[in-house]
Amino acid sequence: MRHVFAFLITATLFAQTAQAEDITMQPHHPYTGLWVTDDGHVRHELLPSGRYIEARGTRERAYEGRYEVSGQHIEYWDDTGFTADGDFVDADTLHHGGMVLRRR
């Protein structure tokens, strides 16, 4: 039992450290904020910390993880290991996974 407890503490500290490193890795960019498909089904919130939250339908936290923007390209790394990317077409339009999201 003692080893399990020590493992859980170590895993928690590692996750917190990784998350803190993610925050410092994201440079400032103009695309933070909420991005939504025209039907409102998919919603991406790009946080200034370099983290994102994706809502789908009634699932407010369907996916979340970190992201990085390089120029007009965005890369996503979900906390479960899933990866995705997209491109900002202009200041108000994001193409991602066959979807078009607009700034709100």
Rank of each mutant, 00 (worst) to 15 (best):
H3C: 08
F7E: 05
L8Q: 09
L8A: 14
I9R: 07
I9T: 06
I9M: 06
T10N: 04
T12L: 15
T12Y: 08
T12C: 14
L13M: 13
L13N: 04
F14H: 05
F14T: 08
F14R: 06
A15T: 12
A15E: 10
Q16H: 05
Q16N: 01
T17Q: 07
A18S: 10
Q19C: 07
Q19R: 10
E21P: 05
E21L: 09
D22L: 11
I23V: 11
I23D: 05
T24A: 08
M25Y: 10
M25W: 00
M25D: 10
Q26W: 02
P27E: 03
P27F: 01
P27I: 00
H28G: 02
H29A: 04
Y31E: 00
Y31L: 00
T32D: 13
T32S: 13
T32L: 10
L34W: 01
L34S: 07
W35V: 00
W35N: 00
V36I: 04
D38R: 12
D39H: 01
H41C: 08
H41A: 12
H44R: 00
H44K: 00
E45M: 10
L46G: 02
L46H: 04
L46N: 08
L46Y: 08
P48F: 03
P48T: 11
S49D: 03
G50E: 09
G50K: 08
G50Q: 08
R51A: 08
Y52I: 03
E54W: 03
A55E: 07
A55D: 00
A55G: 06
G57K: 04
G57I: 01
T58F: 03
T58N: 06
R59V: 06
E60A: 11
R61Y: 04
A62E: 14
A62F: 12
Y63K: 12
E64W: 06
E64T: 03
G65R: 04
G65W: 05
R66V: 09
Y67E: 01
E68G: 14
E68L: 15
E68T: 15
V69R: 06
V69G: 00
S70H: 13
G71W: 14
G71K: 09
Q72H: 12
Q72S: 15
H73K: 09
I74R: 03
E75S: 13
E75M: 11
Y76D: 06
Y76A: 00
Y76L: 13
D78Q: 09
D78W: 00
D78I: 06
D79I: 12
T80W: 03
G81M: 02
G81F: 02
G81N: 02
F82S: 12
F82L: 15
F82V: 15
T83K: 11
D85Y: 07
G86C: 01
G86D: 00
D87A: 15
D87G: 13
D87P: 11
D87R: 15
D87F: 13
F88D: 03
F88T: 03
V89E: 06
D92Y: 14
D92L: 15
D92F: 15
T93C: 05
L94G: 01
H95L: 07
H95R: 10
H95M: 05
G97S: 14
G98K: 02
M99H: 15
V100I: 13
L101D: 07
L101I: 10
R102V: 13
R102M: 10
R102I: 08
